[in-house]
Design a protein around this nucleic acid. Structure first.
Lengths: 420, 420
DNA sequence: CCATTTAATTCAACCACTGAACAAATTGCG
DNA sequence: CGCAATTTGTTCAGTGGTTGAATTAAATGG
């Protein structure tokens, strides 16, 4: 009897590169570690073998390597189940590698350390208006936070395996900040400016690569990180002074061909609308950007830090202020129009409101949902979920640190073969 | 000396599944075959070894397998270069597997056969108005084309390794056509209806899986296929009665979480615009869909087949007809607004106009480019290219057949281990 | 005609997985 | 309590496939 397949066969699976002898172990280390990471209940070696199709012998050997590298530990209490020798559960180690997350934003600096289990082991935010500072001075101030984070990691026996720096702007593949309008940065070579600071360049174990990335992108990863069992594909909208979006597909960040994806703020909402500071007319930012919403709510000219502005608006809306409510409704509608376009195009089923929008979600969600309901072609089959972000301002730093950790889980051989 | 890395380190590479002993050869077959496919000049074994990092011994062994499976042949004339034993160039075989591409559209059926080299070995289009036919009758008519295609493939010594069917509508993961408005189909179970037709179910070599896919998606793959050296990430817009888009990222189709990505026609262009048949207001389709453009050009009510309509409009525009020119300009502007949103979001650098838009590209490109120039934030750094599609109406069928072939190149072990 | 050069193959060694047998640790039943 | 049953984890010979060096093949050039 012939059988037809109707799987998603058009998108082929892609192999990475040449597969050498040792790649076999390298790949299986990743397979087993991912299996350990992707679960609540610590799996046994036998369970992993059954799930992955590897032999128990192979799994044992691989697990030995992972334990030796402190990526995995055995759970102390054996979970009592039935007959037979009790299984020894396997857990991600919390004394092995960790990721350093850094953030430079308009009115604060942040640093955090996330271990392999995803736990935030250290977190520091320093409120400071960065706009008057030069990029070099701003980064020097950041290095102080990074140094403290490293001390904490060292004391806890953690090895920093890498760092990710979030910047509110366009970052190219080499770490150059092409444009960060709200910081007043243009063509800032962050890696070069940081090169002199040993806290970021002379690591304990091997060389920690520093990745510079757009803040909205890392914030989206932070959301992924904060909800381990949550959806693996979603749009994360960061409502700050500008509006950025991080696109997460199958648990990975989508960066576009040059890493400049996610400029949701300049998606056209009404081609004949007001002129945006980008020069075009009717961009989403002119309707739902912080300035416009504040102005519509009667708070024009109040030069508030991003999070305070959202808080103020929320307070006004709570007290029933009509201008604030109308402003939020209009912003939500515009946001809904833009997001509807995205959802029609990318077929996502979850939208996360982050940054300042998280605070304002109670008032933004209804109009956004209403527009999605009207405008998304497939909303009849499966509705789109809109919800506030799980993390607040720390999202980008946590997401950055988490991305380092996720990279280790995806390719543990790099950590295991580090120059001890 | 410490070195900083600024690579795109946030998106981790993902391993597919467990790696067994035999997977090693399986993966290297793919690596070598892809290296052979991705080049103009036939590479030698030594060259492949140097490029991939594999040993010459391994490459030889792998190539032997590929030649035995007729996936690769040795080039007859040795390209004379310098001293030393001349290299034997390796080419994709043209007597091995092939892909069958099928298409059901509003006013035609199509079938084609593409071999491993990408050559279109057979192509047939049958003009027929499908709207009055039931889905079962339409598919029966299609099977006649499929059978002829199979005969041609058999006579040429090709083995059909799979088939892809393009349908102008939403297709779910199981091959169910949820909605094809212009065909009048709803919840049509294509695989079930085809199950009785041996031409598609009883293949020569093994079982050919049939993949059902949205027409715009396969048309986008057709463009990828028609330009081997071209960009690997682009947006392909299909202007038919509706407007669909196929998103190709890194040479692979992006299908969204349920395979319903690319509904560009219902991206909002002006939230207060005319009501669309989807119920929302101001969808792109109400500005740049075939009906609206024809109406604006003074051809309302002319119930023309899709390609004739575009031809008629192009003729009018050529002759300087002011209504037609104005209609095309307005459509191009609306298209530009919608596409600008996409480009801002996904950071693509190439937009391909396909379907009826290909014919109309001379008039559509200027307004589209103008909008992109104004509205794309990064257009200052790197401009967006807009160009007509390389293939015409055959695009989807060729793209479907090509996707089968690409899948074989991505995972040749499936073909090599077929039940001979 | 022979040294030189590059391509491809052969072959012993080796690495990592495989499968089966075995040891370990617990439950359950008589 | 003792023993069979059960499940986990390890050991070990066997094997597939890559590795690296040596060898053969096939050309150019002086």
């Amino acid at each position: 009897m012939a059988v037809l397949w109707h799987c998603q066969g058009v998108t082929e699976t892609r192999t990475v590169g040449a597969v050498r002898q040792g790649s076999l172990r390298e790949l299986n280390l990743a397979v087993v570690l991912r299996r350990i990471a992707d679960t609540d209940r610590p799996p046994s070696r036998a369970e992993i073998a059954a799930d992955t199709g590897l032999t128990r012998a192979t799994v044992s050997a691989v697990v030995d390597d992972l334990i030796a590298g402190r990526l995995v530990t055995e759970a102390d209490p054996a979970p009592r189940t039935g007959a037979g020798r009790p299984a020894r559960g396997l857990l991600l180690g919390d004394t092995g590698p960790a990721g350093l997350g850094l953030e430079v934003n308009v009115d604060y600096l942040a640093a955090c350390v996330v271990d392999l289990t995803g736990a935030v082991r250290h977190h520091e935010v320093r409120r400071i208006d960065l706009r008057p500072l030069s990029p070099a001075d701003a980064l020097t101030a950041l290095v102080a936070l990074a140094r403290r984070a490293r001390t904490v990691a060292d004391d806890a026996g953690l090895g920093l395996a890498g760092a990710a720096l979030a910047v509110p702007g366009l970052v190219d593949a080499r770490g150059l900040v092409r444009l960060a309008p709200n910081l007043g940065w243009r063509d800032v070579d962050v890696p070069a400016l940081l090169a002199g600071h040993p806290a970021l360049t002379d690591p304990v174990d091997g060389v920690p690569p520093l990745v510079v990335e757009n803040e909205a992108n890392l914030a989206a990863l932070g959301e992924l990180h904060a909800r381990p069992g949550g959806p693996q594909s979603f749009l994360h909208v960061s409502g700050e002074i500008g509006i950025g979006a991080g696109i997460v597909l199958d648990g990975a960040l989508f960066r576009g061909s040059r890493g400049w994806s996610g400029e949701l703020g300049h998606v056209p909402v009404d081609p004949g609308g007001p002129t945006c500071r980008c020069g075009a007319r009717g961009c989403l930012e002119t309707y739902a950007g912080q300035e416009s919403v504040l102005a519509a709510a009667g708070l024009a000219g109040a030069d508030l830090p991003a999070d305070t502005a959202a808080r103020r608006l929320a307070d006004l809306a709570c007290s029933g202020d009509p201008a604030a409510l109308a402003a939020l409704n209009a912003a939500g509608t515009a946001l809904g129009v833009a997001v509807a376009g995205v959802v029609n195009l990318l077929d996502l089923d979850t939208v996360v409101l982050g940054g300042g929008y998280a605070t304002l979600a109670p008032w933004l969600c209804p109009p956004v949902l209403a527009e999605l309901d009207d405008r998304v072609l497939t909303s009849g089959w499966s509705p789109v979920t809109v919800r506030p972000a799980a993390l607040g301002a720390e999202s980008a730093a946590v997401g950055g640190a988490g991305s380092v950790v996720r990279r280790i889980i995806a390719r543990p051989s790099g950590w295991l073969s580090r120059p001890q």
